[in-house]
Amino acid sequence: MQGVVKVNSALNMRSGPGSNYGVIGTLRNNDKVEIIKEVDGWYEIRFNGKVGYASKSYITIVN
C-alpha cells in the first residue's frame, strides 16, 4: 500500500510506534512512502530504503 505525507513542515520517522521512540529520519510534505502495516495509530513504513514508523494522522493512502 502506498501513502503520501501531508504536513506543513516535517514529520519524524521513528524507530518504533510512538513519540517516545528515537527519530531515524525526516519526511517532508508530499513524500511518497510504502505502508507496511498499522500499529496503534502509527504506520510502519519504508522510505528511501529505511523502515520506521510515522503517525498515520499525517499520511494519506493513495492507490
Rank of each mutant, 00 (worst) to 15 (best):
Y21E: 04
T60P: 05
I24P: 01
N29L: 08
Y58E: 13
P17N: 02
K50G: 08
K56R: 08
L27I: 08
K56E: 06
S57Y: 11
M1T: 14
R46E: 15
G41A: 12
T26R: 09
S57C: 07
G41F: 08
E44I: 05
W42N: 02
I36Y: 07
Q2M: 15
N8P: 11
G49P: 03
G16A: 03
V51F: 09
K50Q: 14
I36H: 06
I35H: 01
R14I: 06
Q2N: 12
V4I: 15
N29A: 08
G18F: 01
R46T: 15
T60K: 08
Y43M: 06
I24N: 07
N30W: 08
V7S: 14
G41W: 06
V7R: 07
S55A: 13
K32S: 12
V4H: 07
N29S: 13
G18M: 02
D31I: 04
I59R: 00
S55N: 15
V4A: 07
K32N: 14
S55I: 12
K32I: 14
W42I: 01
M13A: 08
D31P: 01
L27S: 02
V23K: 08
Y58F: 12
M13C: 04
Y21A: 05
G25Q: 10
N30H: 14
N8G: 15
K32L: 14
G3I: 03
K6S: 13
V62F: 10
E34M: 05
V7Y: 05
V33A: 03
R46M: 15
I35Y: 03
G52V: 03
Q2S: 13
I35Q: 01
I36L: 11
E44N: 10
R46H: 15
T60D: 15
L27G: 01
S55C: 06
D31M: 06
I45N: 00
N12F: 11
E38L: 07
G49N: 12
E34F: 05
N20C: 06
V51H: 12
G16I: 01
I24S: 07
E34Q: 04
S9D: 15
Q2W: 14
E38D: 11
G41S: 10
S15V: 09
S19V: 12
Y21M: 04
D40L: 07
G52D: 00
S55D: 15
S19L: 14
V7K: 10
G18I: 00
K56W: 04
T60M: 14
R28G: 12
I61W: 04
K56Q: 10
R14A: 06
S57N: 15
I36F: 11
V4P: 01
K32P: 14
R46N: 15
V51Y: 12
N12A: 09
V23L: 06
V5S: 02
S57V: 13
N63G: 13
E44L: 07
E34C: 04
I24L: 10
T26Y: 10
I61D: 05
I24E: 06
E44T: 04
R28D: 13
F47A: 10
D40M: 08
N48Y: 09
M1P: 09
S55P: 09
I35W: 02
V7C: 05
Q2H: 15
G18Q: 02
W42A: 01
V62H: 12
N29G: 09
S9Q: 15
S15G: 11
T60C: 05
I24A: 06
E34A: 04
N20A: 13
L11W: 02
K32Y: 15
I45D: 00
N63M: 08
N30V: 03
I59M: 04
I35C: 03
S19A: 14
N48H: 13
V51W: 09
S57E: 14
N20H: 14
N48Q: 14
G18T: 02
Y53E: 00
D40C: 05
V5F: 00
Y21I: 02
V5N: 01
V4F: 05
N8E: 15
I35D: 00
T26N: 09
N63L: 09
Y58G: 13
N20W: 13
V33Y: 02
I45G: 00
Y43E: 00
A10N: 11
K6V: 14
A54S: 06
T60G: 10
M1C: 05
G22I: 12
T60S: 14
S57P: 12
N30S: 10
I36P: 01
N8C: 06
G52I: 01
Q2A: 12
G18K: 03
N63K: 09
N63Y: 02
N8F: 07
V4N: 06
Y43A: 03
M1G: 11
G41R: 06
K32D: 08
R14V: 11
P17F: 01
S57M: 11
G41N: 08
D31T: 07
S55G: 11
R14G: 02
Y21D: 03
G25C: 04
S57Q: 12
K50L: 14
F47E: 03
L27P: 02
G52N: 01
M1V: 14
G16Q: 03
V7A: 11
S19T: 11
K50W: 08
V62A: 09
G25P: 00
Y53I: 00
G52P: 00
I45V: 12
V4G: 02
I45E: 00
E34L: 06
V39N: 07
G16S: 03
M13T: 04
V51L: 12
L11E: 11
Q2T: 12
N20R: 10
I36N: 07
S9P: 09
G16F: 02
Y58S: 14
I59L: 05
V4L: 10
E44K: 07
G41Y: 05
N8A: 14
V39D: 07
I45K: 00
K37T: 14
I35L: 06
I45A: 02
G16N: 03
N20G: 12
V33T: 02
S9E: 14
K50T: 10
S57L: 13
M13D: 00
K50I: 15
V33G: 01
N48I: 07
I61A: 09
V5G: 05
I59N: 01
K37Q: 14
L11K: 13
N20S: 11
D31C: 04
G3L: 03
G3P: 02
V51S: 09
L11Y: 06
V62M: 11
V4R: 13
K37G: 10
K37Y: 09
D40F: 07
G25S: 11
T26P: 07
V39H: 08
L11Q: 10
Y43G: 00
N30Q: 13
T26K: 10
G49Q: 14
E44D: 02
E38M: 06
A54L: 09
G25D: 12
S19P: 15
Y53A: 01
A10E: 14
T60H: 13
A54W: 00
G3W: 02
L11V: 13
